[in-house]
Design a protein around this nucleic acid. Structure first.
Ligand SMILES: [Zn+2]
Ligand SMILES: [Zn+2]
Ligand SMILES: [Zn+2]
Ligand SMILES: [Zn+2]
Lengths: 159, 159
DNA sequence: TAGGGCTTGATATGTTATAACATCCAGCTT
DNA sequence: AAGCTGGATGTTATAACATATCAAGCCCTA
């Protein structure tokens, strides 16, 4: 699975494709992609970067979709639980899933220069983390894997 | 490097050894392990679990070492920058380094049952995260690797 | 048409983190 | 000794992130 976020790409396709996958998944499972939830996903999808809950709320509020924090947090909670979005723990912020539909364990590359975030994936059971967990008798239920650094564009800018 | 935190061990040795390594490192580099900083490290070292900044502040306050948030955040900032403590991003909390002195990239196993945290390590450049970063042309400066789940004791309790 | 379950509205509050500015103090300079 | 300097601390205020709670509405279905 490639890292999606830094490379130039047909982003309009990203957006359309993710939205239609989300709709299909909701239709299949009975989840309800209500107007606020759908719009929240669109807003997160606009760019490959993470948005704070209050940034999201600001946009929703400007469109008359709700003005109080619970509006944003409920929508985000739904999107995260449905697998349509992920929380970036290092930023306390949220990003639309770039691999919607694929069964995956997300991992993120976070650029400190331009704040863009690329999503890739990992295998928790493999690698040194899995080894350590097995050795300690620890059962992994969820992993947080995030790398901070500089994307290719920002490396050029720095030089 | 083993995962330190779940196994029964001579914890008093943990504490003494970490404190003396921290003192030595400060003596070597000119960093100042002031009373508040030293006491903050001791408080974090008391258990292999993460403490919120305000939990730490509460203890410091009860000992007359300061009552306002910046007291705790400054001490934590020093400890983290010096490598004496790490922030657990998934918990917004802080833990003393269990491998002080060793050159390492920390990774954590976080038990949702008893809140204990074991520290192990990873190699950012290796593994799938490193592969993805290289493929994307991304330069990693810092990684966050955390696993949530159940420690051996809490698995027994659950069964 | 009544009930149950999910969704939304609204108010308040809890939790985590930093900005900004004043003061202190040790070590060095003149 | 007086003055400077840089790091550390004191103090106040606020920013930023997140949740508890209860009321009201909506949708399905029995
Ligand atoms: Zn895209
Ligand atoms: Zn960048
Ligand atoms: Zn120990
Ligand atoms: Zn446990």
């Amino acid at each position: 699975m490639p890292a999606i976020g830094f490379e130039h790409h047909d982003h309009a396709h990203c957006v359309r494709s993710t939205l239609s996958k989300a709709e299909a998944h909701c239709a299949d499972t009975g989840l309800r992609l209500t107007p606020v939830r759908r719009r929240a996903l669109e807003i997160l999808l606009a760019e490959h970067r993470a948005l704070g809950a209050y940034d999201l709320l600001e946009v929703l509020a400007s469109e008359g979709l709700g003005t109080q924090p619970p509006v944003a947090y409920r929508a985000l909670d739904f999107l995260v639980k449905a697998g349509f979005a992920h929380k970036i723990e290092a930023l306390n912020a949220y990003i639309a899933c770039a691999h919607l539909g694929a069964d995956h364990t997300p991992a993120f590359l976070i650029c400190r220069g331009c704040n863009s975030v690329a999503e890739t994936d990992t295998s928790p059971a493999q690698g040194r983390l899995g080894d350590a967990a097995r050795a300690a008798g620890f059962v992994i239920e969820r992993t947080v894997v995030e790398a901070e650094g500089l994307c290719p564009d920002c490396q050029k800018d720095a030089a």
